[in-house]
Amino acid sequence: MKIVVCVKQVPDTWSEKKLDPATKTLDRASVDGVMNELDEYAVEEALKIAEATSGEVVVLSMGPEQSTETIRKALSMGADAGIHILDDGLAGSDAVATSLAIAKVIEGRGADLVIFGSESTDARMSVVPAMVAERLGLPQLTFANKVEAPGDGTVKAHRLTDYGYDVVEASTPAVISVVEKINEPRYPSFKGIMAAKKKPVETISLADAGIESASVGLGAAWSEVAEFADAPARAAGTIVTDEGDGGTKIADYLSEQKFI
């Protein structure tokens, strides 16, 4: 089974993130880049399926030069090969453009499964997996917390919903997005890190992928950041004093906020 797992390099969750006032996009230079945490689960799931079916895992990332670090990390976890979609023209791409580039590159590579993390910790839109599935005309099994892909042309997943989960099944090839806790991602080991050095990473430009530069990048984005400001400082919370009616007061508050 051939599995393409899509990973994104994002700013370290712990670091202070800033927008670049000139481009109104994320300032990626001032912080450490790390693999999007949810993508670690996607890589782990891909590796587990590949190990069980003697398959192959190709890790794909779109992003600036330093995204190779994230590709290397996936390779050191055990992926077999990497694809880096790298082109200055891609800078500022929104989800629509990102899905176009990813779909174009995946197309024709004979992937049985395409696995994503269900969202990135920087943009948090959760739409790229569905868009890629749509563009490729493949079934999508998103928000999965359990995946069974025995390599017989079918894939079954537990798709998380607000009330529990749905059991969904599709024929392969298919697109999957996974949620955290689906597994425990392995750490890259010393041997894995050394082996990753020798694994092939293919770099693909817009021209290589046959993508018109007008259809991607900041200029092609369907949305625009009009203005931005620092998040306001957190206001002091409300303290409810229990005078025998604490429970009711809390329930009233939660109801008011539509939590219950």
């Binding site: 290397r72 990390k73 050191s76 750490y187 890259p188």
Partner: peptide, 14 residues
């Protein structure tokens, strides 16, 4: 090397 940094990050994760 890059491998040292990768290993450093792996230890840091643990």
């Amino acid at each position: 090397t890059e491998e040292h940094e990768q290993f450093r990050k792996a230890v840091r994760q643990v």
